[in-house]
Simulated assay, not measured.
Amino acid sequence: MEKFADELDMAQAHIEREIEMRVDAIQSHANLGHGRRFCIDCGEAIPESRRRHVPNAKRCAECQDAKERDGSPVRRCAA
């Protein structure tokens, strides 16, 4: 029974290391400013200043405001 507990402990430690490595990778990616260049709602370019200050920005400021206000995206792109 002790051997089984040791194997479970090793498996748990492996899982915890794997999670920690993935979280670190995600945080590193976020800190490098790998956001989107174009808004996912309206398709317009996200200004560089916004991408620099909000590295994971997926929306332009206008669409983000609209989403936070009432949940509806701003549709400007006709293409």
Rank of each mutant, 00 (worst) to 15 (best):
E2A: 14
F4Q: 11
H34L: 14
A11S: 05
G33A: 10
S28R: 15
A57S: 11
C77K: 06
H29N: 15
C63V: 05
V23W: 05
A45K: 15
C60V: 03
E7A: 14
A25W: 07
M10E: 12
E62P: 02
S49T: 08
Q27R: 15
S49L: 12
R59H: 09
C39V: 02
Q12W: 08
A79N: 12
D9L: 15
C60G: 01
N31Y: 04
G33L: 11
G33W: 02
R69Q: 08
R52F: 07
C42T: 04
R17T: 06
A78H: 02
Q12C: 08
I40C: 03
G33F: 06
C77H: 06
P55N: 05
E18K: 14
K3D: 06
L32I: 03
K3M: 07
P73L: 01
R37K: 14
A66S: 15
A30I: 13
R52N: 05
A79L: 10
H53C: 05
H29F: 13
M21F: 03
H29I: 13
A66I: 00
G35R: 06
C63M: 04
S28A: 11
V74Y: 04
A45W: 01
G33R: 10
R17Q: 12
P55V: 05
R76S: 09
A13F: 13
E2C: 09
H53G: 06
D70V: 05
R36K: 08
K58M: 07
R51A: 03
D9G: 14
H29A: 08
P73S: 05
E20C: 09
I46E: 04
R22S: 02
D9F: 09
E2N: 12
E68A: 10
D41Q: 10
E16T: 12
R76I: 03
E2Q: 15
V23A: 02
R50G: 01
A11H: 03
K58Y: 00
I19D: 00
R69D: 10
Q64K: 11
P55K: 12
E44I: 02
A66D: 06
S28F: 01
R59L: 10
G43D: 09
K58P: 00
M21T: 08
V54D: 09
V74P: 06
R17N: 13
Q64T: 01
N56E: 14
E16H: 08
F38P: 00
Q12S: 08
V23N: 09
G71Y: 03
K67F: 14
D6C: 08
E62S: 08
V54A: 07
E20Q: 13
I40H: 03
R22K: 14
E62F: 00
N56S: 11
H14L: 14
H29C: 13
A30F: 05
L32F: 02
